[in-house]
Simulated assay, not measured.
Amino acid sequence: MKKYILLSVLLFLSFLSCKHSVKEQPKSNINVPKLAVNKVVQTIDYKSKNNILVCAHRSYHKNAPENSLQSIKNAIILGIDLVELDVRTTKDSVLVLMHDDSIGRVSTGKGKLNDFTFKELQNFSLKIEDSVTPYKIPKLSDALKTAKGKVIPNLDIKDLDFKALYALLCE
């Protein structure tokens, strides 16, 4: 399990370290992703030698909806090392956090996630079991901003547009 988490983190961070757009080529022979990956490997290796790294499944969804920005914030407050984020693409190619292919179990809406635009999804509220919350389905970009420098995101890639993911991670 630890190896899979590490692999996910490494792949994610290699994308995060992009210094060029999808269409541009790097202008030097410096392998920036490799340097970033080495730093991440060293950090995880150092932390894991004397500690157990904790990964929160679907963020930390005990007191907030799964895959919500609040669940990421709760994980940060608790000092959790990694948060698993499930990523899917909406009808209008926006990358969002959602575990299921349909939205009915975790929101006030019904139907397949990829049948909705991001704007349409904002009409629904996220739920914790049967309780409706004020939280909305978040964009992956907002989740990454929330997590940056505070907790390591572990992306669980579901049904998504990989070019959009690559472009977002390079931003």
Rank of each mutant, 00 (worst) to 15 (best):
L78D: 10
L16D: 04
L10Y: 03
L126S: 01
F162M: 15
K49W: 03
L165K: 09
Q25F: 11
D159L: 14
G149F: 04
A64K: 02
I52P: 01
D130I: 05
I103F: 03
I72V: 10
S8I: 07
N50I: 07
A164L: 07
Y135R: 04
L7F: 10
L169N: 11
H61Q: 11
L155A: 06
A36N: 14
M1S: 14
L113E: 05
L13W: 13
A64T: 00
K127I: 09
I72C: 00
K127C: 14
E84I: 06
L11T: 14
R58P: 04
Q70A: 14
L155R: 02
F12H: 15
L126V: 07
L169E: 07
V41G: 00
K136W: 08
G149L: 05
E129P: 00
V151D: 01
F162I: 15
F12N: 15
Y4D: 12
N154V: 13
L113F: 07
A64P: 00
I30G: 01
I152Q: 01
V22I: 14
V94A: 03
K150H: 14
S28W: 08
S28L: 09
L82K: 00
N38P: 02
G111D: 05
I30L: 13
K47E: 11
N114Q: 15
V87L: 08
R58G: 04
E120G: 05
A36R: 05
A56L: 10
V132P: 01
L144S: 04
S125F: 12
G79V: 06
R105K: 15
T90M: 10
K150F: 00
D142I: 03
L7C: 10
V32M: 10
A75M: 02
I80N: 03
F116L: 08
V96T: 06
K62D: 11
A56T: 04
V54C: 11
K136Q: 13
V87F: 04
D81T: 08
S71F: 03
T90Q: 06
S68F: 01
M98I: 05
P65I: 04
I77T: 13
S107W: 02
F12D: 07
E171L: 10
N38D: 15
D130E: 12
L82R: 00
C55M: 14
I44P: 01
Y60W: 15
D130L: 09
L169F: 12
D92M: 06
K119S: 15
G111T: 06
I72S: 00
E24M: 08
M1G: 12
D161H: 09
L11S: 13
I72G: 00
Q70H: 07
V94T: 09
L113W: 04
S131N: 13
K148F: 11
L16V: 09
P26I: 09
I128G: 00
L95V: 09
L169P: 03
K136S: 09
L69D: 01
A75I: 01
V151M: 02
S59Q: 07
S17V: 02
I52F: 10
I80K: 02
K2F: 15
K2S: 14
T108C: 05
N38G: 13
N50P: 03
I5F: 13
F15V: 06
F118R: 03
E24F: 00
K3N: 14
L13S: 10
Y135H: 15
I52S: 14
